[in-house]
Design a binder for these strands. Structure first.
Length: 480
DNA sequence: TTTTGAGTTGTTCGA
DNA sequence: GTCGAACAACTCAAA
């Protein structure tokens, strides 16, 4: 009997289309392992909402492995130390894993490789988390791209990603190493249980992921191009948490989408628009491998001098969805209550924090990191810097979202806002996004007293806009 | 090497 | 109500 090998699961919690697992299964009996390395990433260790998802995803993965006659071994501690212990416990002679792209992942992989070799074993790393490896996408002059559109055009000219690999047959080792109990890791909130009810909103795990993908492609993708901008409409894929944990590979998404284009050519442009969002995931992750400081430092050095403010009561109002701007508050409450926020609304709330409140984008980045089920280091950092104006190819500084106009344009009928800000539900459409302009009688008829049932705006839009333009304008005199 | 066209998602104002 | 211009300047990527 050949020696067993270890498959080290990371943010790739699936069995299908996992090249490293295929290779491991072809080598010998496989010991699947997940290590809860809770401090990995330091400041960017896993946020609360994501831990809830992780718990359920691991539960599913364990069940799925048992269906195959295998198991998921759980260990807690520093990744490299635990792997070394596992090599000793099991006599395994190789560790297989998927490559990850956070700034700390490469050094950790190098450390594991060195440790394995010291132990007379080996470490093998496989692609599969992205469509294209960062090293493979280059401009005509051989440099990495810093602008999305030419980046994605170049990706589309490369060889198409390989077809997804099926679930391999996995043989079990003679002896299993010990495993910890998932329940003892306390990944789920206790008191208060802010995730109560999330199980009816989300289905973590590979099965839920492929159901979401298929459901989306069978239906709502057809109107993705325009429908995706309206938060009350069901035209977004909601695949991001599944992709973040690797329950679904981008190759599976790619191939399923290409298949749909074959059978429904008329949906081609919507499908391409959807795939370009997968392209943004690629782009952000490629950029963070090039610029590992992206999560922590302004891309544009000028922003070291930006006059950010820090007013705790404003930050807290934003976090709690009590700014007095209904579309902003709806988004922030959706985030807190479901671990997710619609894309359009993410932009509105991010613009509001950085521009109306002149609050550092890092405050928003950290809040999203803790609250979002799909929190991805690269996408989160890139997007906050993009909105805040300090990013690579960022939004122009005068692009300041008007929360009233955004509400009236993208949630005209108010279905989204009324759902998350129910105290305004009885207001007529005309005043829903600007309750401070409603006549007293209208407010009374809707059962709303501003300042009691719902806040007055914490800042005046026009004044805040002027202040933001002045603050951003102050950077013009500073050489980059 | 130099030149040229372009770059996710907006708002306001005045004609 | 609708439409175009202004709101800047800079960097990127390709020709």
């Amino acid at each position: 009997m050949p020696k067993p090998v270890i498959y080290w699961f990371r943010q790739d919690l699936r069995l299908a289309d996992l090249p490293g697992l295929v290779a491991a299964a072809a080598t010998g009996p496989v010991i699947p392992v997940f290590i809860w390395d809770e401090n990995l990433g330091g400041e960017w260790c896993m946020g609360g909402a994501s831990q809830w998802w992780l718990h359920h995803s691991l539960e599913q993965l364990g069940d799925d492995l048992e269906q195959l006659g295998s198991r998921l071994i759980l260990r807690r501690g520093e990744s490299c130390e635990q792997l070394e212990l596992l090599l000793a416990d099991t006599g395994a002679d190789c560790i297989f894993a998927s490559r990850q792209y956070q700034p700390w992942a490469g050094p950790l992989e190098a450390e594991v490789k060195a440790m394995a070799q010291r132990c007379g074993a080996d470490f093998k790393r496989y692609a599969g988390t992205l469509l294209f490896e960062p090293e493979s996408v280059r401009t005509g002059s051989g440099t990495p791209f810093k602008v999305f559109t030419p980046f994605w055009r170049a990706c589309l000219k490369l060889d198409a990603p390989a077809a997804p690999a099926p679930v391999p047959e996995i043989s079990a080792p003679d002896v299993w190493p010990s495993s910890e109990a998932l329940a003892q890791w306390s990944l789920q909130p206790r008191k208060p249980d802010w995730a109560a009810g999330w199980s009816s909103l989300w289905q973590p795990g590979e099965t839920g992921a492929s159901q979401s993908l298929n459901g989306f492609l069978d239906g709502h993708v057809s109107d993705y191009g325009t429908g995706r901008d309206f938060p009350a409409q069901p035209n977004t894929s909601r695949l991001s948490p599944h992709l973040k944990f690797g329950e679904l590979s981008p190759r599976q998404v790619w191939w399923a989408a290409q298949g749909l284009k074959q059978t429904h050519p008329e949906q081609g442009s919507s499908v391409d628009k959807f795939l370009s969002e997968i392209g943004w995931r690629e782009f952000c992750n490629h950029l963070v491998t090039l610029f590992p400081e992206m999560p922590d430092q302004a891309f544009n050095g000028k922003f070291e001098y930006f006059p950010w403010r820090s007013e705790p009561h404003l930050i807290s109002a934003w976090q709690q969805g009590m700014t007095g701007y209904p579309i902003v508050d709806a988004g922030m409450r959706e985030l807190w209550q479901t671990g997710f926020m619609h894309n359009r609304v993410r932009m509105v709330v991010a613009s509001f924090l950085t521009k109306h409140l002149l609050t550092h984008w890092r405050i928003g980045q950290q809040w999203f990191w803790d609250c979002l089920l799909d929190a991805d280091l690269a996408s989160n950092a890139y997007s906050w810097q993009w909105v805040g104006g300090s990013g690579a190819d960022a939004a122009p500084y005068f692009r300041i979202f008007n929360p009233v106009a955004q509400g009236e344009k993208f949630d005209k009928s108010g279905a989204y806002t009324r759902r998350w800000v129910p105290e305004l539900a009885e207001l007529p459409d005309k005043f829903l996004h600007r309750p401070w302009e409603a006549p007293d009688l209208t407010l009374a008829a809707a059962g709303v007293e501003l300042g009691r049932d719902y806040p007055k705006p914490i800042v005046d839009h026009r004044e805040a806009r002027e202040a933001a333009l002045a603050a951003y304008g102050s950077l013009k005199t500073i050489a980059a």
